[in-house]
Amino acid sequence: MKLSELKPGQTATIVDFSDDELSLRFLEMGCVPGEEILLERIAPLGDPIAIRVSGYSLCLRFSEAESIIISPTNLPKEKVQNN
């Protein structure tokens, strides 16, 4: 499953990346495999999205989220509103 398929409020664990160039950028920002992430919100026009990772908010474009492979953790920790 890709990060781009996650719904707001859902959590997942990072598994792998499908874009080599982008992956280094994500890794450096703390998105390492095994790290748990939460999809915080989606921008009003549907793109970009904001995730919570290693204690801070990171935003990225939908197209960039497609390159992150995740495995959903089916325990929604907290409900986040999608306005």
Partner: peptide, 10 residues
């Protein structure tokens, strides 16, 4: 390459 990977600060 145009990235949009950035922090949303507190």
């Amino acid at each position: 390459r145009s990235f949009f990977i950035m922090e949303l600060p507190v």
